[in-house]
């Protein structure tokens, strides 16, 4: 029964993820006093891509053809480790937040290779910058999650039990994690999703050569990853003492609270996207250095006991 619930949860998450991106775009356009595309626009894009024919450059190898399924597959597998609806539903004993981060790095590894495989300068540039940003993101992400887990009440607090209780150090760690989320989901200060100016885009540059169903898969993967990051952030910012029983009433309440958290995150991200301008690539290192300082600050605060 648990396994079927997990699959259901994963299915809902994957289907719901593009909605979140659509919602963020809606928020941004609203702030810019524009009408903008409808909420379902990402779904239309994906449907369009699915119908299209796929053009594959002959310079590429099997890596280019298999990367979309690997990236989406790893993101879906990562869904197992995140308390999407209720805490009880995460995979029993399969691993913890660390495994989640490393699954993301598996996806990123193959996406970067695919970028290089095409042989065009833009793909190479995108991969190089993606790996550059990832190498500064990883210490901050792991440290902030570790601080929160370390601070949580239970002595047995594995890296998984990161939603035990509200604490000030948790807030500071969440701030650091928020910066990481901006970097990971290629939001404005780090990377601009909507631009198609090849020299500036990072995540998009790797997808440049993809078309048709492969592009659809990669788009869904991006949306799902964004959902996972939002849920992780939400779990730390507003930890809801969720009962671990699998009763339907508990799950429903948890689901409603989860949607509320995701909407809040989306609004915050939309606000930051509108208010900030994209940074030069090498300023991102200082940006993430600041995030690292926040996580160390959180560690000090949790050391003091708050």
């Amino acid at each position: 029964m648990k396994a079927s619930l997990l699959l259901l949860q994963a299915g809902i998450a994957v289907l719901g993820a593009p909605l979140v991106s659509g919602f963020i775009r809606k928020v941004k356009n609203a702030l810019r006093m524009r009408q903008g595309a409808s909420l379902g626009q990402p779904y239309y894009n994906i449907a369009k891509y699915m119908a299209k024919e796929e053009v594959v450059s002959e310079a590429t190898s099997w890596i280019f053809r298999w990367t979309p399924s690997i990236v989406l597959g790893s993101t879906v597998a990562a869904l197992m480790f995140v308390p999407v609806f209720s805490f009880s539903l995460s995979a029993p004993g399969m691993g913890d937040v660390l495994t989640l981060f490393f699954l993301f790095s598996l996806g990123r590894f193959f996406l970067a290779l695919a970028g290089l495989d095409t042989g065009s300068a833009f793909g190479g540039m995108g991969s190089s910058r993606e790996m550059f940003i990832a190498s500064f993101v990883e210490p901050v992400a792991i440290l902030s999650v570790a601080v929160v887990a370390g601070h949580s009440a239970s002595p047995q607090g594995g890296l998984m039990a990161c939603s035990m209780g509200m604490s000030f150090s948790g807030m500071v760690a969440a701030a650091a994690l928020f910066m990481v989320v901006l970097a990971e989901t290629s939001r404005i200060p780090v990377d601009n999703q909507e631009t198609h100016l090849e020299l500036t885009m990072i995540h998009e540059a790797m997808l440049l050569e993809y078309s048709g169903p492969s592009l659809a898969m990669l788009e869904t993967a991006a949306h799902t990853k964004q959902l996972i990051w939002f849920s992780l952030l939400g779990a730390i910012l507003w930890p809801w003492p969720v009962g671990s029983s699998a009763a339907l009433s508990d799950i429903a309440a948890a689901a409603a609270f989860f949607v509320l958290k995701i909407v809040l995150c989306a609004v915050i991200v939309g606000l930051t996207e509108v208010s900030l301008a994209k940074m030069r690539l090498f300023r991102v290192a200082d940006f993430l250095g600041l995030a690292f300082l926040f996580s160390v600050l959180a560690l000090v605060i949790s050391g003091l006991g708050y």
Partner: peptide
């Protein structure tokens, strides 16, 4: 800690997902 890791399960999840 109560952290535990089952690599075959991860492999299974990955394979199934892909």
């Amino acid at each position: 800690t109560d952290a535990c890791l089952r690599t075959p399960m991860i492999m299974l999840a990955l394979g199934a997902g892909i």
